[in-house]
Amino acid sequence: MQGSGISVLFMGKNLLRLLGGLWVTLRISLIAVLLSIPLGLLFGMLMTLKSPVSRIVSRVYLEFIRIMPQLVLLFIAYFGVTRAFGWNLSGDTSAIIVFTLWGTAEMGDLVRSALISIPKHQYDSAMALGMSRVQTFGYVVVPQTMRRLIPLTINLTTRMIKTTSLVVLIGMTEVLKVGKQIIDANRFDYPTAALWVYGVIFLLYFLACFPISMLARKLEKRWR
């Protein structure tokens, strides 16, 4: 008799393997996020500079990264770079590079929009109170920018976590791949396993992203 699909989850190390797969995804996205935030801050400031060179360079970079599907970028980093330069990047490294490049571009654009949304009058009134340029930034501009930025950054983080599931296509064994392996291995004995395994994966993603978006909502409310 065919067993219930749910029991597949508790056989052997299946649940642990799924968690391990989730960790592959989370690790890539967390490293990429941690690199993207400081780089994006710099990139965003670069975008607000008046110099036409920095404007054009940053614009081209942003548009290039945005227009390219992340999958294409991954293929370029994983297959293309090996072909072109003979560098043999591991799946892990190429994924981190691609997601950092992407995160930096997106983060930079968030920083840029947060910076230019501070009205000129805020600078004027700070300076009229005798503040130096550094004080104006430190006490008036940056705190307001941060308040606008934190919820946006957290949203970007959840987007990055979800998008890293693409790494399965450059041969990495992340949570979806592990799930597929478990399903395939039990196809004949437990045909309903697919529902349960994918259900658990859904739940795992939810558990990873939900607290983060709750945090975003809370901060948004507090810092209207």
Partner: peptide
């Protein structure tokens, strides 16, 4: 100039209090 500005108070049309 920052020293001099401390002696000059200025109030603007759009009452630019710091919102945070």
């Amino acid at each position: 100039i920052t020293e001099l500005r401390q002696k000059i108070g200025m109030v603007f049309q759009s009452y630019d209090l710091f919102p945070h």
